[in-house]
């Protein structure tokens, strides 16, 4: 399965849902926000949201800023 995550092409084994992707990437779901194909996915819906070949995923978090 080929995904574009944060602008980078990545080949991933098939994943049942977005929560599994977050885990596979080693991220803490409580500290990120996710867009799938330009639509925000609420954190509560990660386990109900499929991940499909060709998806464009953005995963962001808070960093320092002014």
């Amino acid at each position: 399965m080929n995904l574009t995550i944060n602008g980078e092409a990545r080949a991933m084994a098939p994943l049942p849902h977005l929560a599994a992707l977050v885990t596979a990437l080693g991220l803490d779901p409580r500290k990120v926000a996710i867009e799938r194909n330009l639509e925000i996915v609420p954190r509560s819906a990660y386990e109900q949201t499929p991940v499909a070949d060709g998806d464009r995923i953005e995963i962001v978090h808070f960093i320092g800023g002014g």
């Binding site: 995550i5 602008g7 990437l25 978090h61 960093i63 320092g64």
Partner: peptide, 22 residues
Amino acid sequence: VTVAIRRVNLSDPSQPMLVDHV
């Protein structure tokens, strides 16, 4: 405090995170 939103670092997900300190 003001904060910014940026892409997470996928190559090193264990790097320090703002919310762990501030």
